[in-house]
């Protein structure tokens, strides 16, 4: 049915990319040379697999590209999946890369005298306003979210808010800014994200890619 049409994989920049590239290599997919050139302005790359192209976007945008079908598959952190909660994305596979956790943190001093059971309203700085609101709403607390795009750890000490919701890998940034982790919202890893329509209309190709990723991930774990 579908002629040799390309499959596009959305790949996030930064931390996850460093772990995703070796994973792709184990799958037998090598991006073209320009992909490794730090000065390139190119955003779309061919690979050693003639039907697979890579696009490189911000980690928050990977989910959006996949949800709208601009990319058929993607490597997306489940923090991003949870934030957008796109109905058009399936996440059938944990790729076992990009491990970290999403936590609520607050200044050490506040932590000792605070009683979370009495909260009715909290002000939180985060990159994840929608997820944060849902998390607090589930326990009956209204969260007033301040959307920041970075340097979250600075917000409590500057009086912007009392708490933050952010990703933590080692906890070093929190410690160095006098914050303590008070609650874990979720463990985060990167997932294989699949566009719903692509899975239905190009079922064979996409299922084959899913199987290929699954075999590689299973082999790595074993």
């Amino acid at each position: 049915m579908a002629k040799e049409k390309k499959i596009v994989l959305a790949l996030p920049k930064g931390r996850i990319r460093e772990e995703a590239v070796p994973l792709l290599a184990r799958l037998g997919v090598e991006p073209e040379a320009a992909f490794r050139d730090p000065d390139t302005r190119q955003l779309r790359f061919t690979t050693s697999d003639p039907v697979l192209d890579l696009i490189q976007v911000r980690s928050f945008d990977t989910a959006t590209f996949v949800a709208f079908g601009a990319a058929q598959i993607g490597i997306v952190g489940n923090d991003v999946l949870m934030e957008f909660d796109y109905s058009e994305i399936y996440s059938p596979l944990d790729l076992g890369i990009g491990h970290c956790r999403l936590v609520v943190a607050e200044p050490e001093a506040l932590g000792t005298q605070d009683n979370p059971a009495r909260w009715s309203n909290v002000r939180v700085a985060t990159k994840y306003p929608s997820l944060t609101r849902r998390h607090f709403a589930a326990r009956g607390v209204q969260a007033e979210c301040i959307k920041l795009n970075g340097a979250m750890e600075l917000a409590p000490s500057m009086g912007l808010c009392e708490r933050i919701v952010d990703l933590v890998a080692t906890g070093r940034t929190l410690r160095e800014n006098g914050l303590v982790e008070v609650e874990k919202i979720a463990d985060i890893t990167s997932r294989l994200a699949v566009n719903r329509t692509a899975l239905k209309t190009r079922s064979r190709e996409i299922t084959a890619w899913m199987d290929r990723f699954r075999e590689t991930v299973d082999a790595t774990v074993a």
């Binding site: 489940n78 999946l81 109905s87 996440s91 059938p92 596979l93 944990d94 890893t189 997932r191």
Partner: peptide, 14 residues
Amino acid sequence: GAPVRNHLDHKDAT
């Protein structure tokens, strides 16, 4: 809104 419903809707195998 139940967790199982959400997991299934997103095909979240994990």
